[in-house]
Amino acid sequence: MLRWYTVLLTQWMEGHGLRSIMSRALRYRLQQGTLYIKGQGEIRYESTLQHRNIVISEILKVLEDVILFSLSNYFLKFSNEYKKVHGVEQFDNDWYDYIEYGTTKQETILLQRLGFTRESATYIRTNVSNAVFLHEGKPYLNPILLESSNINVRKEANEIRYNVPEAFSMPDFMF
């Protein structure tokens, strides 16, 4: 089980989406040829709707119960204690952030903290240059996001502007 959790945790922290994680797991099951079903034990895996749903359900359960709850809580406690002991507000290599935000990319984490979903933040990081500006240590979103060709990014950016207008309120000289 630990190897399985490690694989899922690694894929999650590398920023892979659910679709990618599920596709990999289904391919793995097909290659292995077996599937464990509680009460029945190990059976031959067939790529039927029922077997695929069992695999998908198992992945969602592990992501939710083990990774996003148990491991996340463990690393949150560790992170809080580390910050308290060392008198810092943040530190490099904070696994709590990596698990919570599903990535090790700091820009993607920052975009999520500003209000974007994981998917939109990943899109922005890989497709939009200068999406975030730092001024006196404070991050500001580039207004070009309000007109993004990606519908979800555009929608989320406008929601952020409505709910947190200061996220776009950077000094005029920045443009």
Score class of each variant (00 low, 15 high):
residue 125 R to W: 08
residue 97 D to H: 12
residue 154 R to V: 09
residue 54 I to V: 08
residue 23 S to D: 14
residue 77 K to W: 06
residue 32 Q to F: 04
residue 93 N to Q: 13
residue 127 N to L: 08
residue 80 N to M: 13
residue 8 L to W: 02
residue 131 A to K: 01
residue 5 Y to N: 05
residue 51 H to F: 00
residue 31 Q to L: 11
residue 62 V to P: 01
residue 25 A to K: 03
residue 144 I to Q: 13
residue 58 E to K: 01
residue 123 Y to V: 04
residue 8 L to P: 03
residue 116 F to P: 06
residue 98 Y to T: 03
residue 154 R to L: 13
residue 33 G to N: 08
residue 151 I to Q: 11
residue 148 S to L: 10
residue 46 E to T: 04
residue 77 K to Y: 08
residue 74 Y to N: 05
residue 167 A to T: 08
residue 117 T to I: 02
residue 154 R to D: 08
residue 110 L to C: 07
residue 126 T to Q: 13
residue 19 R to T: 07
residue 165 P to V: 03
residue 95 W to A: 10
residue 60 L to V: 07
residue 21 I to L: 03
residue 63 L to T: 03
residue 138 K to H: 12
residue 85 V to A: 10
residue 158 N to V: 06
residue 53 N to T: 00
residue 120 S to C: 12
residue 149 S to T: 10
residue 3 R to F: 14
residue 143 P to V: 12
residue 111 L to E: 05
residue 68 L to F: 14
residue 98 Y to M: 11
residue 92 D to T: 06
residue 132 V to Y: 09
residue 14 E to A: 09
residue 13 M to H: 10
residue 57 S to T: 07
residue 47 S to D: 10
residue 168 F to G: 05
residue 129 S to K: 15
residue 4 W to A: 07
residue 48 T to D: 02
residue 117 T to A: 07
residue 27 R to N: 13
residue 161 R to Y: 00
residue 174 M to V: 14
residue 7 V to M: 06
residue 79 S to F: 05
residue 12 W to M: 10
residue 144 I to S: 12
residue 145 L to S: 07
residue 52 R to D: 00
residue 124 I to W: 09
residue 126 T to F: 07
residue 140 Y to S: 10
residue 169 S to G: 11
residue 56 I to G: 01
residue 13 M to K: 14
residue 155 K to M: 06
residue 56 I to T: 10
residue 95 W to C: 08
residue 132 V to G: 09
residue 59 I to F: 02
residue 89 E to W: 07
residue 62 V to F: 12
residue 131 A to D: 05
residue 61 K to G: 00
residue 74 Y to T: 10
residue 22 M to V: 14
residue 123 Y to H: 09
residue 41 G to N: 04
residue 90 Q to V: 12
residue 37 I to P: 00
residue 132 V to P: 02
residue 48 T to W: 02
residue 75 F to P: 04
residue 64 E to H: 14
residue 2 L to I: 08
residue 41 G to H: 04
residue 31 Q to W: 04
residue 99 I to P: 09
residue 94 D to I: 10
residue 86 H to R: 15
residue 104 T to G: 04
residue 38 K to R: 11
residue 127 N to D: 03
residue 6 T to E: 09
residue 123 Y to G: 02
residue 113 R to Q: 15
residue 125 R to S: 13
residue 129 S to M: 09
residue 152 N to A: 06
residue 142 N to Q: 07
residue 43 I to R: 03
residue 39 G to P: 01
residue 64 E to D: 12
residue 50 Q to G: 00
residue 97 D to F: 15
residue 128 V to C: 11
residue 126 T to W: 11
residue 143 P to L: 14
residue 32 Q to A: 07
residue 109 I to W: 11
residue 122 T to N: 12
residue 159 E to T: 00
residue 39 G to E: 04
residue 8 L to K: 02
residue 144 I to D: 06
residue 34 T to C: 01
residue 153 V to C: 05
